[in-house]
Design a binder for these strands. Structure first.
Length: 378
RNA sequence: GGGCAGGUGGCAGAGCGGUCAAUUGCAUCAGACUGUAAAUCUGACGCCCAAGCGGCUACGGGGGUUCGAAUCCCUCCCUGCCCA
């Protein structure tokens, strides 16, 4: 099991400094959790991920179920051994794919609505790519196209076979376009699924319940109270987060206020550099995000001044490091010019170096936030 | 010197009488990306512009046939391969 030891609570905000103890080591919180969807932080070895400053990763149940299949992972001795990761591990429940491959794909939206849209998803509306049913969801395998049913029971069973330290309840992550009725109805399902997850769990893994409720305050509050009322050792805060940053933080606050203080809170899928401080101030202990790794593979390096698109020809002329204040191996070793060349030439090492830098850079941001909690600045 | 094959937008390479300012790929430029569908995707890409089924200049140069030519004919220039 896990335990969150709270070292310090901020007087200025809901932020707290802590240590999350897992069966595979301790994690300083607040913590960013790199995403290892298919049992790998894309392009890096686990040793490199560790060197970038991380001790907790999140893998994905949906993707690992289809390839290689949880039986393969189990036979290999579990996810830790399979991927050679000695730190803490989480697995996402596949709930996000209900959204991502459903309405998310239909409307091209993510968890945050980047443009205000009048399009609303109403209560009886159905996504095209998947079928959402009372006790689960029918998907098509991204590997071979065959139809597969996944629900709370199936998700827990798979996650038990995978063997991460922390697992998540199977939920429906609603779209920013979902209206009140849709969200409310979906919430009933997510709550019912949460209970099924708890009941069907046989392992001693830490099962986090997930709070949903979209952008609606009463639904978020209700969801937080319902989920907090169940016997979960930790909580995920999921779903969509409105259409601007202020709203997002406000929504996290609504939820955090309803959650028990002693248990860890994990914000699912949020973590752009600009989000990091605000969500920590809102009381989040951990959060995972694909941004550092994903953007790296699209040629973007994050630096103190913002982000650099190394694919642009102008960087070929710059001999300096990505970020002069970054202490990472990449910034100590390579120039923007060289990295730009690698990215432009589509050399895979370029993707590796940017991934490493971005992860290291993000960790520096989180680390400085932790220091500021300690100093009483946050 | 003879024979054959070619010369198309920054490059490669389609088109072979009208719907061609010209398929496609690359390059270039711009944009997107938050529990990974993602080493991905979108858009622009001759010039002008009051932006439109708009004007202008364009498929090696010149000339011709035709209502109409990148596409057919003549000629010149150039390139590759083969034979002397």
């Amino acid at each position: 099991m896990i335990e969150l030891k709270i070292l310090k609570k901020s007087k200025r905000s809901a932020a707290r400094l802590g240590i999350l103890k897992t069966p595979h080591g301790e994690v300083e919180t607040p913590a960013l959790v790199p995403v290892a969807t298919r049992a790998v932080v894309k392009t890096l070895t686990t040793d490199e991920v560790r060197r970038a400053g991380y001790s907790l990763l999140i893998a994905n149940t949906f993707h690992l179920h289809f390839r290689p299949g949880e039986a393969v992972v189990k036979k290999a001795g579990g996810l830790h051994k399979f991927m050679n990761w000695k730190g803490g591990l989480m697995t996402d429940s596949a709930g996000f794919q209900v959204f991502s491959l459903g309405f998310g794909r239909d409307f091209g939206t993510g968890k945050i609505a980047l443009e205000k849209s009048d399009r609303k998803i109403t209560v009886n509306e159905k996504p095209r790519g998947i079928k959402i049913m009372e006790d689960g969801v029918v998907f098509r395998s991204p590997v071979d196209g065959r139809e597969v049913f996944l629900g709370p029971k199936e998700s827990i069973k798979i996650q038990e076979a995978l063997g991460a330290d922390i697992i998540f309840a199977f939920d429906e992550c609603t779209s920013p376009l979902a209206d009140y009725e849709y969200t409310k109805t979906s919430l009933l399902k997510t709550h019912r699924w949460a209970e099924i997850c708890l009941k069907s769990q046989k392992s001693r893994q830490a099962l986090y319940g997930i709070v949903q409720g979209g952008k609606f305050k009463d639904l978020r509050k209700e969801s937080a109270r319902r989920i907090a009322g169940l016997d979960f050792p930790g909580f995920g805060i999921g779903g969509e987060f409105g259409d601007d940053k202020k709203k997002m933080v406000e929504m996290v606050r609504w939820v955090v206020e309803e959650l028990p203080e002693k248990k860890p809170r994990h914000l699912l899928g949020i973590g752009s550099p600009k989000d990091i401080r605000p969500i920590i101030e809102a009381g989040v202990d951990a959060f995972d995000c694909t941004i550092p790794t994903h953007y790296a593979r699209h040629g973007t390096a994050f630096v103190s001044s913002g982000k650099l698109d190394l694919g642009k020809t102008r960087f070929l002329k710059e001999q300096k490091a990505l970020d002069k204040n970054c202490r990472c191996e990449v910034c100590q070793t390579y120039s923007r010019s060289y990295l730009s060349h690698l990215i432009r030439a589509q050399e895979i090492t370029g993707l590796r170096l940017l991934t490493f830098h971005n992860l290291f850079f993000f960790n520096q941001l989180v680390e400085s936030a932790r220091k500021d909690i300690k100093k009483g600045k946050i």
